[in-house]
Structures are given as C-alpha cells and as structure tokens.
C-alpha cells in the first residue's frame, strides 16, 4: 500500500474512534447523573469531537481527493468506518460509560505519548495537544472508577459487570496489522503491541484500587479497523448522517 493511503487509513482509525466515542458521550448531554457530571462528560465529548475534526481534516488532506472532515464523517457508510468497536458500544448505565472512557483513555494516553515523537510533524503536534485532554479524561474516569468500584455494593456490582462486558473489545486496541507495521517502520506511529504493557500496568493498578477483578483475556475476531462493526454503528450513522443524507449537497 502506498504510504499516503496507509497514513489515510491510520488517521481514519484514530479520527473515527474519537468521533464515535464523542457521539456516544454527546448522547448523554442533558441526562447526566448530576449537573456537574453532565458538564464534565460534555467537556470530554467536545474534546473528542474536536480531536476527530483535526484527524479527519488531516486524513482528507492525506487522501488528496478534495474531501473535507464533514465528507468523511457524513458520507461514508458503516463498512468504511475504521473506529475501534469499543467506541460503538451503547452508553448503558453510568458504569459502562465511565468504564469505557477509562479503558480508552488509558490507551490513548500511552498512544499519544508515543505519537508526540512521530516523524509526521502534524501528527506529533496533534498528539501533544490531545495528550493534555486525554490525561484529564483518564484522571476524571479513574476518579470515578475508584469511587464506583469501592463505593456501595450496587455500584461495585454495576462496575464489575460493565468491565466484564467491555473486556471483549480490548484485544483490538493492541492488535497491530500491516498498516501499523508500515507506519512503525517509517517512524510515524508506534507498534500498538508496545502500548499493552504500560496499559496493563495502569489498568491493573486502578482495578486493584477500585477493588475490581480483572476479567480473563478473550479471543476477538476481526473488528472495526477492518470495517467489520457491531450492529450499533449503523444506528449511530443513521442519526449522525440523517440531514446530509436527506438533503444531499446542502450547506448547513
């Protein structure tokens, strides 16, 4: 695959994941467990959608066919989305929402730290900015993991259930393929496998503090980076893309 196409695909993976997770969190705006948390989750949604805009704009540029961030967000179908499946899972209760955010932020903090040294200057600049945001997401979600895990019997049970349910989507985070290899060779992106150890250390420490059990690792089939998604993504896109699809070509 040409370098340009490889970079395009990689940027879609990062950008789509942030877009879809931002979408999920934005669904909660107005429905949070308490006003303060409503505001906090919306801040995180805004960060993630902001990150996806930078990445999708850059992806469109790398592709070089004159598409825009909105073309990529609004006019691709399910099979062309490259996000991690973890991002698509419905919000569920607050335990699922927080647990997913924690697992993902622990991953992006490691990834972005390494991407700060990317030979691709634009990507390195993006990573430096996004890392600050991700660090706060990790802090906020970690604070909640500990409080829910070590709060009441009900909150502990809900959080353990959430963790067990989300665990099947974790292997995809560290599963490198030809695109990762090629970018690794050119110094643009890290080998996802090297993130795993640090992620494990961080996650294990928080799970211990939250008095949670780490679920056994599971096998996982092909996933979002290959365009094979959960059943949820189609519904997300139906909502996300509704106006652009119903009124093609209009400016909004």
């Amino acid at each position: 695959m040409k370098q340009q196409e490889v970079l395009f695909q990689y940027l879609l993976r990062l950008g789509d994941t942030n877009l879809i997770l931002g979408h999920r969190l934005s669904e909660l705006c107005g429905h949070g467990p308490v006003l303060e948390e409503d505001i906090a989750l919306t801040n995180i949604a805004l960060d993630l959608i902001g990150q996806s805009r930078i990445l999708l704009s850059y992806a469109a540029k790398a592709e070089g066919q004159g598409r825009t961030e909105d073309d990529l967000a609004y006019l691709r179908d399910v099979g062309q989305f490259r996000n991690l499946l973890l991002a698509e899972v419905p919000n569920g209760d607050f335990a699922v929402t927080i647990c997913r955010l924690f697992l993902y932020s622990a991953y992006t903090c490691e990834l972005l730290t390494l991407l700060c040294d990317s030979k691709d200057e634009y990507l390195a600049g993006y990573a430096a900015k996004a890392l600050k945001e991700a660090t706060y997401h990790l802090r906020h979600s970690t604070n909640w993991m500990v409080r829910l895990g070590d709060g009441t019997a009900e909150s502990h049970h809900r959080l353990q259930t959430a963790l067990n349910r989300l665990w099947m989507y974790i292997p995809e985070l560290f599963d490198g393929d030809a695109i990762d290899v090629q970018l690794q060779e050119t110094g643009i992106a890290p080998d996802p496998n090297v993130l795993k150890e640090k992620w494990n250390t961080r996650v294990n420490a928080v799970l211990a503090e939250a008095t949670l059990n780490r679920p056994p690792d599971q096998w996982m089939g092909k996933g979002g980076r290959d365009g094979i998604h959960t059943e949820h993504l189609g519904f997300i896109l139906a909502e996300l893309q509704y106006l652009q699809r119903a009124y093609p070509g209009n400016q909004w």
Partner: peptide
C-alpha cells in the same frame, strides 16, 4: 439536546454541544 447527535456538520455539532452545556452551567 435532541439534535446534538443529528447536527448536520461537525462545526455545528460542537457549537450546539457547547451551548447546551452552557445551559447546564447556567442552571
């Protein structure tokens, strides 16, 4: 908030999200 997930561009989406969030802050 009904329309946040259906905002027709990413620019509109972040603006609306920030606005609705402000309302939570004002409350």
């Amino acid at each position: 908030a009904n329309w946040i997930t259906r905002a027709p561009s990413l620019r509109r989406k972040v603006a609306l999200l920030a606005k609705v969030q402000d309302e939570a802050g004002h409350g």
